[in-house]
Amino acid sequence: MSIKIENLSYVYLKKTPNEVKALDNVSLEIPEKKITAIVGHTGSGKSTLIQTLNGLLTPDSGEVTIGEFKVTSKARKNKRIKELRKYVSIVFQFPEYQLFEETVEKDVAFGLKNYGYKQEEAIEKAHEALKKVGLDESFYKRSPFELSGGEKRRVAIAGIIAIDPEVLVLDEPTAGLDPVGSKIILDLIVELNKNGKTIILVTHDMDIVMKYADHVVVINDSKIAFDGVPADLFDGDVSNYSIEIPKLFTFSKMLKEKGLDIDLKTIRNIDDLFVQLKERHK
């Protein structure tokens, strides 16, 4: 059940002088059980796009089909919105601002209780989710407000993955984190993907795209500018999209141009390049 986006348009501040077209007739298919990266400079419409995926925004025209759910331009028709939000969950940028409970475990369990889980069951699942993000028992009873930024972020992400959505959307989950914190979150994303979750990742970091994404979508000026695999994106002309090609890709491409037999599509990190070089050039 992939996610199908058809002719989606969205306008902010409609019928005022400050009207802004955030999405302009966007059609797109996001593959199931893959990691899809959404790339584009600030204000290109990425955030608007992900918010239509679980009906937080009602599009002005067009529709989104996610399995048996549908988000259309007619708000009344979008029934079962709560079920949809359990199916597609969004981790917003700087999710640490959504914490409010007295203890970490209660905060993570909050979403579960909203979806009808009993208290004990919710706490139990909250503990599981906290373990997944690498926070041990010592954190359960602490106040979320006394944690460090990275820990807060992990608590907030735990609050979403505890709900166990099939499609997990993350808006710049690593923004403002140190390298260790980023790696914990990215490893978690890979782990969730291996367990069969569809991941949609909004990011500015092309190294992340190259390393983790199976599929990449570039949004430029409210329109889809590119839709395909990361290697094709980096191989083509990206001068218009404010994208910085990863150094590793540039390096591999130079090696290939010098006559080495390298398959650019399968290189995700330095180890992949090493393995290819070793196998093909004995």
Binding site: R85, S89, I90, F92, Q98, G111, N114, I163
Partner: peptide, 16 residues
């Protein structure tokens, strides 16, 4: 804007 953002974030956690 902040209210809007937090409302959306909590809506994603099943708040109606």
């Amino acid at each position: 804007d902040e209210t809007n953002r937090i409302m959306k974030a909590q809506a994603s956690r099943g708040v109606d």
